[in-house]
């Protein structure tokens, strides 16, 4: 990665981390409701892959841990935070919530809350790209536990069969909700499960963004050049529980501390400091600047935004009626 890109991505990852930590606080304050799945610890996965791809151009789809993926594709953090607050200015106009962030304009095709649900949707997006003849690719980010759903196997089979331009990124954070991977899954290393479908696959350290970037470059090039799907497994760790009601009784604090020694943000920061590209003081100033941005722009926007109108409760259930009348009434031809 180029130095300028590394510095830019470091700031982005700090934004992502601070955004998520601020969500935690707002949830405790009951300003965010429902379920909230946070991303700290895994930032190098999304950032490393998307640095190798084309954010806003390639199509991205994921599960319910989706805030950072949306923002990385180009969604405004203000609109994402407003969505978590359930406001009309939210990315889904307050109808979606934390698990359903969408930004179609930036080709972020959404967060979905059925584990494994996005696999076939991603393949379908790739099918549409194939039919239209574009050079975009579909990227599906999901966790390791999604691979125990039937959709994983069914989709891999079809993606390989039809050579669809789809990159499956498995963020292996070692836990499916509160069950350790070795207690739920016969094969811990997920890339090994893909060989039965004849799909190219690799495993990579998911904490070191430069390693993720290099692995993702190979993966993205493979898919974009028309060679069919690719499966990239990134070994990572989520610091927080699965969602907010999770006290993490299924793992030790020692294990958590061990992973925090290889924090994706600090790894990159320390490398930049060692390369004399920045100082610790620069980093501290960066954190301060990001905190100010999150508090005084992002959270402020969400707090001050209006609620959706109850009169528009049914607005998005079906397509705008006026535009569909020929088919509803049969008065077309």
């Amino acid at each position: 990665m180029k130095l300028e890109d590394k510095k830019r991505v470091l700031r982005e990852m700090v934004v992502h981390r601070r955004f998520e930590e601020r969500c935690y606080q707002a949830y405790i304050e009951r300003k965010i409701g429902g379920f909230l799945h946070l991303y700290p610890g895994q930032e190098a996965c999304c950032n490393g892959v998307m640095e190798a791809a084309r954010p806003g151009y390639d199509y991205v789809i994921t599960g319910y841990r989706d805030h950072v993926h949306a923002i990385k594709c180009g969604a405004d953090p203000k609109a994402v935070m407003a969505e978590l607050y359930g406001k009309e200015t939210g990315s889904s106009k307050g109808r979606g919530g934390s698990m359903h962030i969408f930004d179609a304009q930036h080709h972020f095709m959404g967060g979905y809350a059925l584990v494994g649900g996005p696999f076939p949707l991603a393949a379908g997006i790739a099918k549409a790209i194939q039919l239209k003849g574009g050079d975009e690719i579909a990227i599906c980010f999901l966790g390791d536990a999604a691979n125990n759903q039937g959709t994983f196997h069914e989709t891999l089979n079809m993606a390989a069969l039809w050579k669809l331009p789809v990159l499956f990124v498995c963020e292996n954070n070692l836990y499916g909700i509160g069950t350790a991977i070795e207690r739920s899954t016969a094969v811990v290393h997920q890339h090994k499960r893909v060989c039965g479908y004849g799909i190219e696959a690799a495993e990579c350290d998911g904490q070191d963004i430069e390693k993720v970037y290099e692995a993702a470059k190979l993966a993205v090039n493979h898919v974009r050049s028309g060679k069919g799907p690719y499966f990239l497994e990134l070994m990572t760790y989520r610091y927080r529980g699965h969602s907010m009601s999770d006290a993490r009784g299924y793992r030790t604090r020692e294990e958590e501390e061990e992973w925090k020694q290889r924090d994706p943000i600090y790894l990159l920061r320390d490398r930049l400091i060692a390369e004399k590209a920045m100082t610790m003081a620069d980093y501290e100033a960066l954190e301060k600047e990001v905190d100010h941005y999150i508090e005084h722009e992002v959270v402020k926007f969400a707090e001050e935004s209006p609620e959706p109108r109850v009169e528009e409760l049914e607005k998005y259930v079906l397509a705008e009626r006026a535009t569909q009348m020929p088919w509803l009434t049969g008065q077309a031809a």
Binding site: F119, L121, K127
Partner: peptide, 24 residues
């Protein structure tokens, strides 16, 4: 355009739905 699918109802249905997001 005329796709014989494997016997994987949930996923070929999902695949069609995903394609429809892009106007197919």
């Amino acid at each position: 355009r005329v796709m014989d699918t494997p016997i994987s109802e949930n996923s070929y249905t999902g695949l069609g739905i995903g394609a429809s997001f892009l106007g197919v």
